[in-house]
Amino acid sequence: MPLSSRHLLGLQGVPREDIQLILDTATTFREVLERPIKKVPTLQGKTIVNLFYESSTRTRISFELAQKRLSADTINFSKSGSSTSKGETFKDTVKNIEAMKVDMIIVRHESAGVPQFLTRISNANIINAGDGRHEHPTQALLDMYSIRERLGKIEGLKVCIVGNIAHSRVALSNIHGLKSMGAEVSLCGPKTMIPKGIESTGVKVIHNIDEAIANNDVLNVLRIQLERKAGSTIPSLREYHNYFGITSERLEKFNRDIVILHPGPINRGVEISSEVADGPYQIILDQVTNGVAVRMAVLYLLGTKN
């Protein structure tokens, strides 16, 4: 059974069967990654462009590796900033790249909606690698894969996303994906980091980290950065750590099994203490490994759909 769409723009509205299919396919590719020769010929002859308009290390490397493992030809294009400032427009850049006959475009951009825009100006399969504060679907898929790998299921689990929800592309994709898979999702963070009307996605919002630890099976801890306008949403990283940081003391207080995810890069001593980041509850590096398998699954399912 193929995926219902030829693009992966986000997880909003993606049917449960599609997510299931991606996660199941990823299991097969996960096994490939354990082989001595970690390469399959599945996408031989396909050309994939990684169009990164915003800096990224892990996501770009993960996609590139997934493409190489599937024997696709890959091109990397990185540029930062607005195309309004002198030079070629985004549309012209895309048209030029496409004229070289590419099959898929992986895109990351500072502006929400760019993947949707790409589907209107290009015939390639489009995969969203993060658009503004909108979605980052492959991150949520690898998070779900990792949760399922650790706990054997997603349905019925209680998952809390902790941190700066308002500026996160990971949060929204996780909310849509997890809800679709039957998990119960809540959010925890300072009120200034919770966007207006997020409850409309069917999540509960709390502002007490102890409550989040006490009542959930999984915490997905987001990276905290001081905004351009320092102090405009939280007074300081220190205060954030003291009131919302995940520390061993907090976890031990409740003495219960909990799984901690983090999409990285981690800020030790801010949203998560070093002890927790290296401790028994976290699965942060598993997420990274699984990320390659999940991206292989997405590339394979979209690349062989046409």
Binding site: Q12, A112, G113, D131, G132, R133, H134, E135, A166, R169, L172, P195, K196, G197, I198, E199, S200, T201
Partner: peptide, 15 residues
């Protein structure tokens, strides 16, 4: 406009 729609679209909101 700032609302649940701006939140769901991930676009910076103006209240």
């Amino acid at each position: 406009n700032e609302s649940e729609i701006s939140t769901q679209l991930g676009l910076p909101p103006k209240p």
